[in-house]
Amino acid sequence: MPIAVFTKNSRPRLGKVFGDALIDLSVAAPDLPDSIIAFLKAGAPARASYDKVTRDSGELIPLTDVTLQAPVPQPEKFLAIGMNYADHGEEAKKLGVEVPPYQLWFNKQVSCINGPFDDVVSPKVTEKLDYEVELAVVIGKTCRYVSEEDAASVVGGYMVSNDVSARDWQLRTGTMTLGKSFDTHGPIGPWLTLPDEIGDPHDLRLRTFINGEVRQDGNTRDLIYSIWQQISYLSQVMTLKPGDILATGTPSGVGVAMNPPQFLRVGDVMRVEVEGLGHLENRVIKDRG
């Protein structure tokens, strides 16, 4: 069962999700750490304690009675790969953006992280706000020089991510970081699904709905670089640590590539989902800064 971060009239706590309810782990398993990063760092003993919690281990709290928070609010790194689906790469070519013959990574600054159902601000300095549904991988172990064959062993879990993008800012420079890092532009969640709960992460459907209209509909089987290749590649450069987030790419259907382009407007509701992992739903609101 997934592990969530939630609030209910108090500080954030961990919960084990059972369908449409959860159990407060601070009550059912008080020996467990109080954050997902600490949970991942604690390794096998924490997982064993977590697995012992059942539907009968405490009060089942309806999800409608709690507020779900970003599962990993303060990772050391939030990295994302660009143009990692062939169909999205073709979209990019039509916009004059060449697809490089290697993995193209950029930072989303961790200050952009947002909750799974929190509002997303439309910045007053952009007119080209866009969406990108992505499967997010959360690293579970400190690792370096990981082989593709061993990469699955360092995954702590999976989430849904929406790589909200200010396209005009993104395309000003080759790094893309500024256009990907506005405050609130990194919704993640709705919880962390542990690796053994989803089977093959390379066969998951991803979809985006804008005001109920399907805009993106893809499958992770179409990744150009697999999750294992991504982890191996990054780990040649840097030490990956528990809680680090890797957004693995988005399929075709982004607003900037539509004819004419369909950018987000205040009041729009984005729903992005990944099969087996749940969904995020975020309303676009006016920038009042």
Rank of each mutant, 00 (worst) to 15 (best):
4 A>F: 07
6 F>R: 03
8 K>A: 05
8 K>D: 02
11 R>C: 03
17 V>A: 08
17 V>K: 14
20 D>Y: 08
24 D>C: 03
29 A>Y: 00
30 P>D: 03
32 L>Q: 00
33 P>K: 04
39 F>G: 01
40 L>Y: 07
41 K>R: 14
42 A>G: 03
43 G>A: 10
44 A>N: 03
44 A>W: 02
46 A>T: 05
48 A>W: 01
48 A>P: 00
48 A>Q: 14
50 Y>C: 03
51 D>M: 11
54 T>Q: 11
56 D>P: 00
59 E>H: 01
61 I>H: 07
62 P>S: 05
62 P>C: 06
63 L>F: 02
64 T>I: 04
64 T>H: 05
65 D>F: 03
65 D>E: 15
66 V>R: 09
68 L>V: 06
70 A>E: 08
71 P>E: 03
73 P>A: 13
77 K>D: 01
79 L>D: 05
83 M>H: 08
84 N>S: 03
86 A>K: 15
87 D>C: 07
87 D>L: 09
87 D>S: 14
91 E>H: 07
95 L>H: 13
100 P>Y: 09
100 P>Q: 13
105 W>F: 14
106 F>P: 00
106 F>S: 02
108 K>L: 09
110 V>T: 15
112 C>N: 00
112 C>E: 00
116 P>H: 08
118 D>V: 04
120 V>N: 07
120 V>A: 06
122 S>C: 13
123 P>T: 14
124 K>R: 14
124 K>H: 08
124 K>V: 11
128 K>M: 14
129 L>G: 09
133 V>G: 03
134 E>P: 01
135 L>D: 04
135 L>T: 06
137 V>G: 01
138 V>M: 02
147 S>A: 05
152 A>V: 12
157 G>V: 12
162 N>F: 05
162 N>I: 05
166 A>F: 08
167 R>T: 03
169 W>C: 06
170 Q>C: 07
171 L>A: 10
171 L>Q: 09
174 G>F: 03
174 G>N: 11
175 T>K: 08
175 T>V: 08
176 M>S: 04
178 L>R: 12
179 G>S: 01
180 K>I: 02
189 G>V: 06
199 G>W: 11
201 P>K: 11
204 L>W: 03
205 R>G: 01
206 L>F: 05
207 R>T: 14
209 F>I: 00
211 N>Q: 10
212 G>M: 05
221 R>G: 09
226 S>F: 10
226 S>N: 07
229 Q>E: 15
230 Q>S: 10
230 Q>D: 01
233 Y>C: 13
234 L>G: 07
234 L>E: 11
235 S>P: 08
236 Q>Y: 09
238 M>R: 04
239 T>D: 09
240 L>Q: 06
242 P>D: 09
246 L>Y: 07
247 A>P: 00
247 A>V: 13
248 T>Y: 10
250 T>D: 10
254 V>N: 11
257 A>P: 06
258 M>Q: 15
258 M>C: 05
260 P>R: 13
263 F>P: 00
265 R>E: 15
270 M>V: 13
271 R>G: 01
272 V>P: 02
275 E>V: 12
276 G>S: 13
277 L>S: 12
278 G>L: 12
281 E>A: 06
283 R>K: 15
283 R>P: 05
285 I>H: 06
286 K>H: 09
288 R>G: 01
